[in-house]
């Protein structure tokens, strides 16, 4: 049998570390960050029945991180009785978005067409964002299920961004930037986002400048949001796995550096 290389042991170690912590179900104490609180406060502050656009701007690969973020925001919005309009600017996010909305709407007995609608995907995101700024109906003459725009009760009063309280972009890449630049910049619509942890620093300048109104970041953000809405979900559980992986990487970095300095000292000797 071929001997395992150090990297293979690292892989095994990570698998065992994450597996064990998941089995132990250790409760985590996660303080709420300002940005997550801002998202919560904004949704909370809106009058019941406020229309919000939820844009699923992600691919399937990031679903384990994106899903807890999207679910917690959707649950909060549905619980508050807001009218949600789902769109997708990445083809892969189309069905995922629809399923997430369907799932959360059912939890709160929300009805399709009256409490939420799903418009689906449009190609070329910049064109789609600009076009929605002029007319949602022209951009999406039919919804994802093939119903005419005007046949959907809650959409009859929605013309463009002027008629919605904001856009929440659920993204795993830089697509939220286009929402900020074209939706926020050109049409002055309020932009909020839930993004993967890797994208947080990309959006920091926009948060600081106020162009991005709130940011729920990664699994930690999802876990914080779950705490705020008092509803357990994948964020808290995922956070456990992620924290273990982070600690494991920290230990590896320390071991790697100790080994490096020892070998350097030996080399000098």
């Amino acid at each position: 049998m071929k001997r395992l290389e150090p990297r293979h042991w690292i892989f095994v170690g990570l698998f065992v570390a994450i597996g064990c912590t998941m089995l132990l179900k250790i409760p985590l104490e996660i303080p709420i960050t300002d940005q997550t609180q801002k998202m919560y406060d904004y949704i909370e502050s809106l009058p019941e029945g406020s229309p919000l656009i939820i844009s699923f701007d992600h691919e399937a690969s990031s679903l384990p991180e994106i899903k807890p973020i999207a679910l917690s925001i959707l649950r909060h919005a549905f619980r508050k009785g807001h009218k949600l309009i789902g769109v997708a600017l990445y083809a892969e996010g189309t069905l995922i978005g629809y399923r997430l909305m369907q799932e959360t709407a059912a939890e709160y007995d929300r009805e399709y067409g009256r409490d939420y609608a799903y418009l689906g995907f449009r190609p070329q995101y910049i064109a789609a964002i600009l076009s929605m700024g002029e007319s949602l109906e022209q951009t999406f003459p039919q919804d994802y299920l093939g119903n005419d725009f005007q046949d959907i009760e809650m959409l009859r009063t929605i013309g463009n961004y002027d008629d919605v309280a904001g856009v929440i972009s659920i993204a795993d890449g830089s697509l939220t930037t286009h929402w900020i630049e074209y939706g926020g910049g050109r049409y002055d619509v309020r932009i909020l986002a839930g993004v993967t942890a890797a994208m947080v620093t990309t959006y920091d300048p926009y948060v600081a400048s106020g162009q991005l109104n709130a940011l729920v970041a990664g699994l930690r953000g999802a876990a914080e949001y779950e705490k705020l809405i008092d509803r357990e979900g994948g964020g808290n559980r995922g956070m456990l796995a992620q924290s273990t992986a982070h600690l494991y990487v920290i230990v590896l970095i320390i071991i790697g550096n100790v080994a490096y300095f020892r070998s350097r000292r030996k080399g000098r000797g």
Binding site: L14, S61, P64, V249, L252, I255, G256
Partner: peptide, 27 residues
Amino acid sequence: QIPMQSTVFALLAFFVASASFRGFRAR
């Protein structure tokens, strides 16, 4: 497609762990 893509994406964690051990040195 979704499970396959998520699996490939999850594998990144293993490579990041290995790369951080070998590459993150105070040189």
